[in-house]
Design a protein around this nucleic acid. Structure first.
Lengths: 188, 188
DNA sequence: CCGGTTTGGTTGAATGACCAATCAATGTCC
DNA sequence: GGACATTGATTGGTCATTCAACCAAACCGG
């Protein structure tokens, strides 16, 4: 039952990390939560960092979206809204790891690849929307960068500030993104 | 020379934090960098967390912007560009502390207030731009939330991914923000 | 002008705790 | 009997925080 234990550890790690945060979480606590011996955690994951990266992948598989198409962009924003409401624990872990990644040689590359793939996903959506309007696809990359950035920033605000109006922000983002499609950007 | 030592400690703390990151930084190292005894750090700052919060305030005073007005919005985006290039250390600390704040009762409120005040600052600019166009000021709050969010997200990408094109993203953000002023958002 | 005293600043060693990672030993299934 | 899975004690550190002692300068009564 190897794959089973592996997953048990991942799930336990996520639980403890969500409750206590990265730097207040010890391998010992994760092992206890999973009901296994401390050494077993290191048997499956060479270091705490690799474990945490695996946890990030593990919990983000569940959140993955799969939208494309015309009104699909609007659909994607709607999904973003519920994601911001319902995956708070996952998002919280994500933000934390971004912070850690800035000074950790293992987590750094892992998070960077993660961020890239998300942005590229958004870029594809942007490209499709632009194609449907028969507009120049060039600004897609810049727009995707901004949209990803905005979603992350909204995520941060909704986690940090309980009074922040998340839906309002996502609506504003949707409006800004779509209006940008009509008025081409002035080049620097 | 009390205020002097205080500042020496803050500066040293920033140096070490920038080099090593929050969780790899010990009070001992900060004291060494400042050339004082370990105990002195706790004499001025009751805990590591309060010290780090003070550092954030200390380094952000230097970055503060003071722009308003018509083309002032464009000016603000230009300033944002150079801020993203030149204050990387400060930004890195900021992002890290956001992550830590999610599970720290001392740093949490500190960062939250920080984020709020920044967003309010942007909201004022947005309100002025809308006023000049004689448009409805209602969407200012939502727009400000998105603009702050986007700047933070761009900051993250530029720190995490060396291949990220920061200027392109800021240009796209400027274009999106300004075009949003003309086409009012559809309400949910 | 001068002893003594208070006060604020400063020291560095000691405390008590915690942790990631290792490893030899044990168990379990084929 | 061998490979994989699991144990938990051990190792070698690290850390934030506390504390008793030390120092110097300002202060004050005489």
């Amino acid at each position: 039952m190897s794959g089973d234990t592996r997953e048990k550890i991942l799930q336990a790690a996520f639980t403890v990390l969500s409750r206590q945060g990265y730097e207040n979480t010890s391998i010992k606590e994760i092992a206890e939560e999973a009901g296994v011996a401390q050494g077993l955690v290191h048997y499956y994951y060479k270091s705490k960092q690799q474990l945490v990266l695996a946890v990030l992948e593990f919990v983000c598989k569940k959140v993955e979206l799969g939208v494309v198409g015309e009104a699909g962009a609007l659909e994607a924003f709607a999904q973003t809204k519920t994601m911001l409401k319902e995956s708070r624990d996952t998002n919280s872990l994500y933000i934390q790891l971004i912070g850690v990644s800035l000074h950790d040689p293992v987590i750094g590359p892992g998070v960077r690849d993660f961020v890239r793939s998300e942005r590229i996903h958004i870029e594809e959506i942007a490209r499709q929307v632009l194609a449907e309007r028969e507009a120049d696809p060039t600004p897609a990359r810049g727009i995707a960068g901004v949209v990803w950035a905005a979603i992350l920033g909204i995520m941060v605000q909704s986690l940090v500030d309980p009074e922040f109006d998340t839906d309002e922000a996502v609506d504003a983002l949707a409006a800004m993104s779509l209006s940008a499609v009509f008025t081409p950007a002035p080049s620097a």
